[in-house]
Amino acid sequence: MSTVNVTVTVNGVERSAEVEPRTLLVYFLRDHLRLTGTHIGCDTSNCGACTVMLDGKIIKSCTLFAVQANGKSVKTVEGLAENGKLHPIQEGFKEEHGLQCGFCTPGMMLSALELLQKNPHPSEDEIRWGISGNLCRCTGYQNIVKAIQYAADKMAKGEA
């Protein structure tokens, strides 16, 4: 069984592991780096629980081999808060009750992050499309929309 060395900058820190080429990025993060905030909710690339950012773009880490991320940078839920301060998206999810079981939440927040980076003032409809690759079974999405609106408002105020 051949392995390859994979080095990925994860949340700003260079991390390496010897993995089989078939190792999916999500297993690299979870099994090898023990960053277990990224979850696995399906086996068909549908649910979005494993969403992370690869070089600033959201992807499904269950549909990318870790070796493909070699030399690239990955942001996971563990990298959302900076300097001990919650990201406005994290704050929004707590304030607006945007989570219940919490299983979809990490992926959902990363989708929200890309959405707000592309579109800082999204409408409700745009938010719903922005998170359409992330399934949630608990919240009915309504408070997730509110959570992202909260973050958008907060981030806009931060810019001003």
């Binding site: 905030g37 919650l86 994290q90 707590k94 009750h97 939440t105 927040m109």
Partner: peptide
């Protein structure tokens, strides 16, 4: 009241079954 359980979940620090190694 805002939920006590949220702090760990929003930081990826919930501990679900697959997180046991």
């Amino acid at each position: 009241v805002k939920r006590k359980e949220d702090l760990r979940f929003i930081q990826g620090k919930g501990k679900y079954i697959e997180d046991f190694y």
